[in-house]
Design a binder for these strands. Sequence first.
RNA 1: GCCGGCUUAGCUCAGUGGUAGAGCAGCGGUUUUGUAAACCGUUGGUCGGGGGUUCAAGUCCCUCAGCCGGCACCA
Length: 648
Amino acid sequence: MDYLLPNGDKLSLPEGATGADAAAAIGPGLARAALAIKVDGVTLDLARTLPTGGEGRIEIITEKSGEEALELIRHDAAHVFAEAMLELYPGVQISIGPPIENGFYYDLDLPEGVTINEDDFPTIEARMRAHIDADEPFVREDVPVAVALDRYRGEGQSYKVELIQDLVANAPADAPVETVSLYTNGEFVDLCRGPHAPTTKRIKAFKLQSVAGAYWRGDSSRKMLTRVYGTAFFSKQELDEHLERLERARANDHRRLGPLLGMFAFSEVSPGAAFWFPPGTAVFNELVKLSREMGRERGYVEAKTPQVYDSSLWKTSGHWDKYDQNMFVTEYEERQMALKPMNCPGHCQLYSLQPHSYRDLPLRLWEPGLLHRREPSGTLHGLLRVRHFAQDDSHIYCTEDQIQEEVAGVLQFAFDTYRLFGLDVRFELSTRPEQRIGSDELWDKSEAALQRALESLGLEYDLNEGDGAFYGPKIDIHMTDSLGRSWQLGTCQLDYNMPERFGLTYTGADNVEHRPVMIHRALMGSYERFIGILLEHFGGELPVWLAPLQAIVLPIADRHNAYGAGIRDQLLAANIRVELDDRTESVGRKIRDAELRKVPFMLVVGDREQETGQVGVREHRSGDTGAVTAEAFVARISGLIERRALRI
RNA sequence: GCCGGCUUAGCUCAGUGGUAGAGCAGCGGUUUUGUAAACCGUUGGUCGGGGGUUCAAGUCCCUCAGCCGGCACCA
């Protein structure tokens, strides 16, 4: 059969040829370098017979193939890890061990009373190293289901038994599962779909990284297994670089930067709630001001609603049933009250307190509302997951005909917002879940409206089928933190349900009462989370308009303090966040301290500046940029702040 | 909430079951400084809280809390 190579060349191979044969036919160097072969987009072991039929496009996977190649040896490393664990901890039950982004993990059920921690890694790694040095081939074997079941029952590997049983049970009727594939390396046999590299020796560098708990099958009602994370590379150097990258990323952790910049801190007396120092509060308020200004330009109107509500409101909204575990509830004068975890019920109440005409719609209510959510202790994470936060929250009440335009407006607004920060965000469209309310026709219409809005703006998005809210589909905006963890920022959700529950109406042109549709939207999400993400994105070097401290005046000697104070006052008068460093310290010291605080502008003033009415401007990281008059500097920084410039 | 780890001065961290330490910060003094750390001195601790073992606990055990890494959760 003729196969097609990536460069367009044809490769003729006899019937029954394997991937290894293909690589050898191309050249001996490639034969040595080959890890696996990709046929029509499917990666296979080199030892497997090449499929006939199909287009026959083949590509040899080598170390140079990037992620696909790394995935192979990381998966290999997971097997070697399990192999080592079975030897070191008799009675351990193994479950699954896939490659993941940047590494692999393996979930194990350790024998009763046995735990492992990072101190055990050197021993385990040494055992893994021995298996890698032994150059054990990975051998695939397809065996009948009954054989595999017998094998794992005999070994007491109940998780493997369950996996096989589920494979059989979940197979489609027209393609029943009769065999499963086992991969053997050394004495170790693992139920595995593959593919794998030819031998363990292809793992050139690896490291176990952390141990964690993980529920079997991701189900919190099932047993918690022990998960070990690790990674593997084709060279020690790449591994070291990877570990250094992780180390450097920690420098951008907002939990480190926030206190360093004097922005916020946390205290045991209120876990999951930030204490905002004045400089952090200034940053927070800049963002609120931004959403207020941008909203006003786009027809949003600001409202204020209460913090604490009678349980009847939460019963009406449905939170009392579905969300009670996540609310702070209190009681007084024999009434049950709860702090609001969301703004929408309050906004619906506000809507219902006045009559509405179709002429009022769309009504775009905005409130930077303070929320409290009783988040489980294990979920808290700096500013990114808190119990107390404020959302740039809006609820748009509109007619069905207005949905399309309103959603497009929200997305454009989101786009405009994120562009200001240079953030590269991901949009995700989540469609109808299995458990839902409303007719399919309504869902068709809602999903189409969201999709059209995304496409009309040319936004790329991922589709999350079945992940919508029970009352409507949604578009979420995601971004990753310094360590690559994904967080949801903004959201735009269509909701036919809550207006119904609250009996909201408007009088149409036909003088008949109609039900408005509601769009929940938040763009930054919570200001807390947004600030956390911004800090990590900018590594603490926020744009001037957002910087907690925008400029600092550094007198060279004490005799310049009075002049410096004058400069500071001039900047204060122009609404610039500025300090005077009049400590009895050398300029070098003052500059170093200001650099560490990442202050965008340092204004050095000495004899020369004092005589000419100037300031010596030093920019964070760029260094001395020369002297200008104080007025010229104020004009420059004010301009940067006013137009919210991303860069100096 | 669950699994594992961690918690010593404001911060970063040392500290064999036997007298709690260093650097930085802070404070006091000297120096008056020209673009990333002047010099000298000095304050500062219920060793996260509580309980236990022991002649003796920062160190060992139990427990609670917070934090870190994951898992589940994120309406």
